[in-house]
Simulated assay, not measured.
Amino acid sequence: MASILEHGIAIGIGAAIVTTVAATDIPDQIHDGVREAVCLVEGPECGGETWTEHDRPDEPEEPPAFGIGGGVEIGDVDHEDLLTVIEWAVAQQGKPYLWGGNGPDAFDCSGLIQQAYLQVGVNIPRTTTTMWPALPEVSQSELTPGDLIFLNMGSSRPQPDHMGMFIGNNQMMHCGNPCQVVTLDSYWQQRYMGARRVIT
């Protein structure tokens, strides 16, 4: 019996609340808010009563593209072919490392460099160890964008086992994992073996 009474009281209280709310402008505010939200999603087709173009959220910005214009600044380049080579190489940022990879979806360190120079019709040896003795040496103090940097990342042999491309501003484009531009800080300086020049 008590439960029926309690149930009735609850219904009465609920009805009183609904009646009180209905007498205010809250329902209109809720209606307008919902309609405005729907219009922001659907666009002017919803009737335009609450639609204004400037209220619609902007499309989210795409993340900056890798490569030139994506935060990488290359040094001064005085040869048009070199600029093409560097821009192509830097545009491969974010692609994964693959031993023996020649692209277009993945590269190893020397594969990236060879493919970059092939963009201007210059064919250089395929591997780090064959490029090292085949190309003209250049001193570290005379590095210019497009020169190749050779490194020893831990090999016991007195020869390079990794390489990248100097792009100016103390930066190197290389294929680690992923392919990326790095600053030639002390980590890389400790592993530096020498540099070579492809286009003179």
Rank of each mutant, 00 (worst) to 15 (best):
V198S: 12
T130I: 05
A2N: 14
D147A: 07
G47Q: 13
E36W: 09
G47E: 09
I4T: 05
W188T: 11
M173C: 12
D105F: 06
D58W: 00
G121K: 02
V34W: 11
V41I: 15
N169P: 00
P160L: 02
D147W: 07
Q140H: 08
P136T: 03
G101L: 04
A15Q: 14
A195F: 11
D108K: 02
S186E: 15
H54C: 00
T130F: 06
G154W: 11
D147P: 11
I17C: 05
F150H: 12
A65N: 03
S110Q: 05
L82E: 07
G47Y: 12
R126E: 05
L135N: 01
V41E: 12
A23I: 07
Y192S: 04
H162T: 07
A15T: 15
P27R: 13
Q159N: 08
P178A: 11
I149L: 15
E6Q: 11
Q189H: 09
G75T: 11
W188P: 06
V181L: 11
G69N: 07
L151D: 10
C39K: 03
A65F: 00
P145D: 03
C175I: 00
G103F: 08
V85F: 01
N123C: 10
L5M: 06
Y117V: 01
H7P: 00
I74P: 04
E45C: 09
